[in-house]
Amino acid sequence: MTSEDALPAEKLTPRQQQILAIVQQVGFTTIETLAERFGVSAQTVRRDIIQLQASNFLQRFHGGAGLASGGIRSAYAQKLTISPEGKQRIGAAVAQIVPAGASIFLDVGTTVEAAARALLHKPGLRVVTASVSVAQIFCHHGIFDVVVTGGITRGANGSLVGQATIASIMGFRFDHAILGLGGFDDDGAPMDFDLEKIAVRQAAISRARNVLALADSSKFDQSGTARIAAPEAFGLIVTDAEPPARLREGWQRAGTAWHVA
């Protein structure tokens, strides 16, 4: 396969996006494991991995795939290329929803970072975050009274996880928890791949009066390793495109609203 066959992130198939997300979370996975997960042949998975390597997203190894090294784009840089305009619209919608003076928790992820940028000029916000990248967005604009939880850094976006992170969150009460996610379960429940990040999100949900989940349309056909919470735990899901029927039906049953930015 030549460089002419390389695809940008937004052109990857849903299965290729999920393979990439799995590798980003666990570092390495086997072809056999992926074939069993997706219910396809090993040859089908192998073709996906070859395409992903040609597009500089991961590295093919004997029997599997792992994180790329050297000059190949980082997972975080890849995510920045996915639906940037959609994420901006989601961020602008969040800024319309969150009132001045609100107490908010901001999660990790490029979509949440777009919301943080949209909230920069909202007066009087009291911000708590488990993301070093989100804190830097505010600091770069001269806003320094942002609470950053303790914890262990995880990933290129400066995610903070662990018991110190959870203990810090449990000391607050939020008007809004603004959360990212990796995909959706069959009933519309938000999911993710990293159990420690899920634990941080669950703590924020338990301390928030209202929970917003942010998801660009690339997440509609993705799932995850575990559920963040049941659909009814989320007051609103903000997206950049009309979600498929199965998600709408699940959210309707749970009484969860959604907004297309």
Rank of each mutant, 00 (worst) to 15 (best):
G171Y: 06
G171N: 12
G171K: 09
F172M: 07
F172W: 14
F172E: 11
F174M: 05
D175W: 09
D175H: 01
H176F: 15
H176C: 05
A177R: 10
A177Y: 11
L179M: 02
L181V: 00
G182C: 12
G183E: 09
G183P: 01
F184W: 02
D185I: 02
D185M: 03
D186Y: 00
D187M: 03
G188F: 01
A189V: 07
P190C: 09
P190M: 02
D192S: 15
D194Y: 10
D194M: 07
L195T: 14
L195N: 09
E196F: 11
K197M: 14
I198H: 06
V200A: 15
R201L: 12
Q202E: 00
Q202N: 04
Q202I: 00
A203G: 10
A204E: 01
A204W: 04
A204S: 09
R209C: 01
R209H: 11
R209K: 14
R209S: 13
N210Q: 15
N210F: 15
L212N: 07
L212T: 00
L212V: 01
L214Y: 10
L214S: 09
A215Y: 06
A215H: 07
D216A: 06
D216Y: 00
D216E: 11
S217Y: 00
S217I: 09
S217F: 05
S218P: 03
S218D: 06
K219G: 06
F220H: 08
D221K: 13
S223I: 07
S223K: 09
G224L: 11
G224S: 07
T225K: 12
T225N: 13
T225W: 13
A226H: 12
A229R: 01
A230N: 08
P231C: 01
P231S: 12
P231D: 04
E232L: 03
A233T: 09
A233Q: 07
A233S: 15
F234C: 11
F234P: 05
G235L: 07
V238C: 08
V238L: 12
T239K: 03
T239L: 10
P243V: 00
P243T: 07
L247N: 00
R248P: 04
R248A: 12
E249F: 01
E249G: 07
G250C: 02
W251P: 02
W251T: 03
W251S: 08
Q252R: 14
Q252C: 03
A254G: 04
A254C: 06
A254R: 11
G255D: 05
G255M: 08
G255A: 06
